[in-house]
Design a protein around this nucleic acid. Structure first.
Length: 520
RNA sequence: CGGAGUGUGGCUCAGUCUGGUAGAGCACCGCGUUCGGGACGCGGGGGUCGCAGGUUCGAAUCCUGCCACUCCGACCA
């Protein structure tokens, strides 16, 4: 008997995609909603995925010259007030600490009114201000620049609506904060980290993205320029997978981050910030999941190869186990070119072999190997590739001599990594339209002319449209029109190969192309 | 904070209209047979039916109030 996920992926039916997403989070044992409002419990397997991401990205961040540090969780309210746009942008979603003590009132614990803090503390929603405060003290001379700091931390944004990994009130992330002597250097840093994210997303997560600049209305609060990488989920919606901001001298002025130049002048620094979060885990689920559960790119799989011994409570079980142990030992010995180490596991838990096999399928282990007494006797293994689990209705399992499997396993992991990326890349490339002539076309393609409940959407993908880069009120009007179609401007791709023609909105000559999509 | 919906074992839900001893499937525990394509048989544990009132001989079911969660909006990594 074969059983697919109770909720199957329905790329043609919007209402079931969130259910499908939640089902995978549950079936793959990644995370669950916490009883604490808007928060998430990341379970060991889900956290393991995040740890692999961290390991890879942390290496990249260090290779580009940054160092890790840690700053306080609580930020004095006054720090935010210094940068007007920044406080405006985050004011509506801040968790605020106002007291430091409880007292017992008739057996009930209450906040002690006498323990009110002189100045409220904000649970960090992002750390520009508290790190800027440190920069202001640390940076004296041009010799101190550039200052390249990264922090792995948790942040809190009091979101109205939450969804596992994609939007939770607390999330884990990495935030880089840098200070530079001039705009050119800071801008170069912004682009360097955007490229780090693009490459990390594509080569490590196997999630193809489009890197570009956000329109001015979508900028990070307080930024001069904001860049993003955008990934396409299986329902055709866009997920902002990472951001990199050039902050100009806004924060430097607000926080007095100055240095003495070689010429002896006092000058304000140019700063940047950039980050990616546990949202990426959700992005991987929505990019690579299928009806059997999660499919993990080998580079971020906590276990890349899982060996399931076929045990039968018989004397020959000992041989099977020994065979499996030898296999895992051989696989994990030494490094290989594809990844720093092979992460293999012999699953010796007591449950039935068939149940264990399917548990690893749901969790997304890239290679699942079965070893039984027949294999042990013949010196061979039976295995399944998670990227192509089924051949029609059949499970596509293969048999291979042990030595050959040990030699080929890293190569197959590489193939799986590549095939997941290629499938997602085909999805992305195949669902971007460039043949849009007018706003009416856009409405047509997205089927939003129909106002009934089904809201049958004709096109699930993105539109790359000619664009004259309007600003101010004109831009706001365009965004308002798009909003009626539930569409947003995602970014203006860095790669502008096809620019030309007439702007879809203003009718003026286009200077570039802009990505338009529904978004998470 | 607006609109809609849902709260019943760990999970997914039926039962509510029409009040009468708390149910199913999966999961879990035990025994046995199994095990190489998501097992089967027998036995078992686990729920004050979201909370608080009310009506009634009797409430998961009817009434009132509250709370929580989910989805759609507004907001966002």
């Amino acid at each position: 008997m074969q059983r697919a996920l109770s909720v199957s992926r329905m790329t043609g039916n919007r209402s079931t995609f969130p259910e499908w997403y939640q089902a995978i989070n549950r079936e793959a044992d990644l995370a669950e909603v916490s009883p604490v409002r808007g928060m998430m419990i990341i379970k060991p397997w889900g956290y393991g995925v995040w740890e692999e991401m961290q390991r890879d990205l942390d290496r990249r961040i260090k290779e580009t010259g940054h160092v890790n540090a840690y700053f306080p969780l609580f930020i004095p309210l006054s720090f935010f007030a210094k940068e007007a746009e920044h406080v405006e942008g985050f004011a509506k979603e801040m968790a605020v600490v106002t007291h430091h003590r409880l007292k017992n009132v008739g057996g009930k614990l209450e906040v002690d009114p006498d323990a009110k803090l002189e100045e409220p503390l904000i649970v960090r929603p992002t750390s520009e201000t508290i790190i800027g405060d440190a920069f202001q003290r640390w940076i004296k001379s041009h010799r101190d620049l550039p200052m390249l700091i990264n922090q792995w931390a948790n942040v809190v944004r009091w979101e109205m609506r939450t969804r596992l990994f994609l939007r939770t009130s607390e999330f884990l992330w990495q935030e880089g904060h840098t200070a530079h002597a001039d705009a050119a250097d800071a801008r170069a840093e912004t682009m360097r980290m955007l490229e780090v994210y693009r490459d990390f997303s594509e080569t490590t997560l196997a999630v193809p993205v489009i890197a570009g600049e956000k329109p001015e209305n979508e900028r990070f609060p307080g930024a001069v320029s904001t860049f993003s990488i955008e990934a396409m989920m299986q329902d055709g919606k866009a997920l902002q997978a990472g951001t990199s901001h050039y902050l100009g001298q806004h924060f430097a002025h607000a926080q007095n981050i100055r240095f003495q130049s070689a010429a002896g002048e006092l000058e304000y620094c140019h700063t940047t910030s950039w980050g990616v979060s546990t949202r990426l885990v959700g992005g991987v689920v929505m990019t690579h999941g299928d009806d059997d559960g999660l499919r993990l790119p080998p580079k971020i799989a906590p276990r890349q190869i899982v060996v399931v011994p076929m045990l039968r409570d018989k004397p020959e079980d000992a041989e099977v186990l020994a065979f499996g142990e030898a296999l895992v030992k051989a696989l994990t010995k030494g490094a290989h070119a594809f990844d720093e180490r092979v992460r293999a596991l012999l699953d010796t838990r007591g449950s039935r072999s068939a149940d264990k096999r399917w548990e690893w399928v749901r969790r997304g282990a890239p290679l699942i190997v079965e070893v039984g007494s027949r294999d042990a006797a013949a010196g061979q293994v039976t295995f399944m590739r998670r990227d192509r689990l089924r051949d029609g209705d059949k499970i596509a399992s293969q048999v291979m001599p042990l030595a050959e499997f040990i030699a080929k396993a890293p190569v197959m992991l590489e193939e799986i990594q590549a095939s997941l990326f290629n499938d997602a890349k085909a999805m992305l490339d195949g669902n971007i339209r460039t043949d849009i002539a007018s706003f009416a076309d856009l409405a047509d393609y997205y089927g939003a002319v129909a106002d009934d409940e089904d809201d049958a959407v004709a096109f699930r993908g993105w539109v790359k449209a000619p664009w004259s880069r309007p600003t101010g009120a004109a831009l706001e009007a365009i965004e308002a029109r798009l909003k009626t179609l539930k569409l947003t401007l995602r970014n203006i791709p860095l790669d502008q190969s096809g620019a030309g023609g007439t702007c879809l909105f203003t009718g003026q000559p286009a200077v570039e192309e802009v990505l338009i999509a529904r978004a998470y």
